[in-house]
Design a protein around this nucleic acid. Structure first.
Length: 199
DNA sequence: CTAACGATTCGCT
DNA sequence: GCGAATCGTTAGT
């Protein structure tokens, strides 16, 4: 199966990248454990014109510096002091765009994912939520800046492009502080999927 | 140095 | 539906 190369991520339209990431497979090989799942839900964040983005108006901090790198790197940060959120940096160097991965449909390594999540039995919330999927996949701050064609995290093309009619387009979650930009329809998920954080 | 605040989740009502 | 948990980052003193 083909691993997505740099070119996929180094594009100007982060919304397009977000939509095309739906249906792709994210894989991790961390601490000797292999896990994978199909991306079912994403959100776009743009450094140029989006108040919800950590790099709004090209703001540069130590935390968000990786967003300014060339597309194809991992932007991981701690949210609410509890959860690690995983983003995929896109666009050319200097343009701080990113795609937040909010949910996946688990494929391989179910037992390991459940163990990491401390779940006794299988449930739909195994990795449906941005803080949940990082836990299930074993992603944490160690992976800040990781290249997405590396040995620990990579994304595979499933060669099954989704029809536009199978993608639900709606507003992002938890960005009320962004004022009018909270209304942007920049959250996308696979209509038919049960593995989505919120319908 | 200090204080406010989350791109969330879970448990309880 | 509501509030607590929990801590690194950020901006301001």
């Amino acid at each position: 199966m083909a691993i997505l190369s740099k070119d996929f991520y180094i594009r100007e339209d982060v919304v397009q990248v977000s939509k095309e990431l739906l249906g792709k497979r994210i894989c991790t090989h961390i601490e000797g454990i292999y896990t994978s799942g199909i991306i079912t839900e994403t959100e776009s964040y743009s450094g140029r014109n989006d108040k919800a983005c950590h790099a709004h108006l090209q703001k540069k901090t130590k935390r968000n510096q990786i967003m300014y790198a060339e597309g194809g790197r991992a932007y991981v940060y701690l949210c609410y002091g509890i959860h690690h959120l995983f983003n995929i940096v896109s666009n050319v160097e200097g343009q701080a765009d990113a795609v937040l991965v909010r949910a996946i449909a688990p494929e391989e390594g179910l037992e390991h994912m459940m163990q990491r999540r401390k779940m006794q039995k299988m449930a739909k919330n195994l990795c449906a939520g941005p803080g949940l999927l990082t836990q299930a996949l074993g992603i944490n701050m160690n992976h800040y800046g990781a290249e997405l064609w590396g040995a620990q995290i990579w994304i595979e093309d499933t060669c099954k492009p989704l029809k536009e009619s199978n993608i639900v387009k709606t507003t992002r979650i938890g960005v009320g502080y962004a004022g009018e930009d909270a209304l942007l329809p920049w959250r996308f998920y696979i209509k038919e999927s049960e593995w989505v954080s919120k319908k």
